[in-house]
């Protein structure tokens, strides 16, 4: 039973962190944890690329929708989506107008909502339902009723988007980061990024014929190699390195939907990016 303590002019509730600044490195080390509790561990996060899948229109979207409808019978899934060409256009106009990074982060989610609503419409016959921030804690209501929650990827940092680590004035945090973080709190079984390339390459395979495929790499090493281009956000790699629930993510080519079936079955398709924080199998 906690007690109220006075005597230094403040009224404290007795706790292990009482009177702490929560800034002390010593305190952070003492309260660190290697792993944390998972909320709904049997869920898969399927992240659909905005530019890579949605912008391709029906020839890429409809096969993905069909395979998700089939896979739903066997797996619990949350489907997230990015913004694609319209997100780039938003940034292009926003930058031209001189909007600060927090302003860009606040508005870019609007075009992801378009893509979410399109996927919800198409998946509605199979239980597709929009899944918004304020209903995060209703996740089990959707999943236990056999629905497919569909959400946007952009994390809700909005005006509070931190100044970017990377060059330029774009938010570091995009849909890849947002969906990863949702999966981290959920304690999801897997995170699968569905793109239009087979996985990670040392350069963009669409522009370079000699691009070399990388089947497995740690996020740390991928950051250190500092390739000019990557199919996933660099901030997602930094976030993965510090995650306590998730150990890896997978990047697959969704233009061949058999890859998605195989990835959910745990087969080794696409590229795996793992956190160097943990030993294999830990």
């Amino acid at each position: 039973m906690s007690e109220l303590l006075t005597g230094d002019g403040r009224t404290h509730v007795e706790s292990g962190l009482m009177r702490e600044s929560l800034v002390s490195k010593k305190l952070l080390a003492e309260t660190d944890k290697r792993t944390v509790r998972r909320m709904v561990p049997d869920v898969h996060m399927i992240a659909i690329g905005g530019q890579s899948i949605m912008d391709r229109g029906k020839e890429a979207i409809l096969p993905v929708v069909d395979v998700l409808a089939t896979l739903k019978e066997k797996y619990k899934m949350v489907v997230g989506v990015g913004g694609g060409a319209r997100a780039r256009h938003t940034f292009s106009i926003g930058l031209d107008l001189g909007l600060p990074v927090g302003g860009l982060a606040r508005i870019v989610g609007g075009v992801e909502e378009n893509n979410r609503d399109i996927l919800q419409f198409l998946l509605a016959p199979h239980g597709g339902i929009t899944f918004v921030k304020d209903h995060f804690q209703d996740l089990q209501l959707f999943l236990n009723n056999g629905l497919i929650p569909i959400c946007i990827g952009q994390p809700p940092y909005h005006f509070w988007e931190p100044p970017s680590v990377e060059d330029g004035r774009l938010p570091d945090n995009g849909p890849d980061v947002g969906l990863f973080l949702m999966a981290e709190v959920i304690g999801a079984e897997s995170v699968i990024y569905v793109k239009d390339v087979d996985g990670i390459y040392d350069k963009d395979p669409k522009k370079h014929k000699d691009a070399r495929f990388i089947a497995e790499i740690s996020a740390k090493e991928l950051l250190e190699r500092d390739y000019d281009d990557l199919p996933v956000e660099r901030e997602m790699l930094r976030t993965l390195e510090n995650a306590r629930n998730l150990r890896s993510v997978r990047v697959i080519n969704g233009l061949n939907t058999e890859n998605l079936t195989a990835a959910l079955a745990g087969e080794n398709v696409g590229s795996v990016i793992y956190s160097s924080r943990y030993e294999k199998g830990e």
Binding site: P100, G168, D229
Partner: peptide, 19 residues
């Protein structure tokens, strides 16, 4: 046509002033 992770793209946007 660029991924937003492209270093070339990010560098081209450096030094912009915001309102």
């Amino acid at each position: 046509g660029q991924t937003l992770s492209s270093r070339e793209l990010r560098e081209s946007l450096a030094n912009r002033k915001s309102i």
